[in-house]
Design a protein around this nucleic acid. Sequence first.
DNA 1: CTTGTAACCTGTCTGC
DNA 2: TGCAGACAGGTTACAA
Length: 271
Amino acid sequence: MPELPEVETVARGLARVWEGRRFARVEARRPDLRRPLPQDLGQRLTGARIERVGRRAKYGLVDTDRGDTLIFHLGMSGRMRLDPTEIETHDHILFTTDEGRVVAFNDARRFGSLDLTETAALDAHPLLAGIGPEPLGPGLTEAHLAEAFADRIAPVKALLLDQRLVAGLGNIYVCEALHISGIHPERPGGKVKRAEIAKLVPAIREVLTQAIEAGGSTLRDYAQVDGELGYFQKQWRVYGREDEGCPACAKPVQRIVQSGRSSFFCKRCQK
DNA sequence: CTTGTAACCTGTCTGC
DNA sequence: TGCAGACAGGTTACAA
């Protein structure tokens, strides 16, 4: 489920039920996800007022009035289930507000993570330090990407997945942005021309913006907190569409494997 | 420093 | 129906 648009969708969903409320109870049903959970999680959150729910890269951020920020990552299979009718096997953490609403952090594969840190030191947190600019913010510019790509022989696909260069992109939206901008995923970063980078930047912004408007993409899990599906997968140009016609030229979409992950692209439109 | 691969863990789908 | 194998939105440790 979770690249930037899905995490943004989840954060907005949580904001609606959490902001202004207090945590009445926080229960971890196992000691770890990908990494150990903070042992004082319940103690530090219980009674705290939730000031704001936001996002940085693929991390959800929850600020409390105690000067703490809860950081969560959904990994590959993480979901936030609002007011579950029953507790499921992979509901690992249960958050209950003073209003009595329950959010279950469910994550079958347990690639997700959760930590608690002081808000004042948030940017220095190991999970966030070194993360690149937000693609929908002012930091992602043609000049920034040109510098990030310069002299690199790694394929542009891999570079765009590197969270240190740009925050929040994942396999789906990199494939989509490269198709929109006509760049072959295997092209070495240093060989991408300035004019192509000038197309790539708005392509990234466009695909992320449209995906957020659609409520993200749904694959095996639903994207939104309230159980509503995201619909952006219906707008995928190439991702997951091997052998189907390219939306621009109708030539069959190709699938290749790069560093163990599928890349989808059009041979004719992407050089 | 850069690059590529394997590993983490569970579930789902396909083909035999 | 059973079973093996491939694959899945991410990150990170490690080797070269």
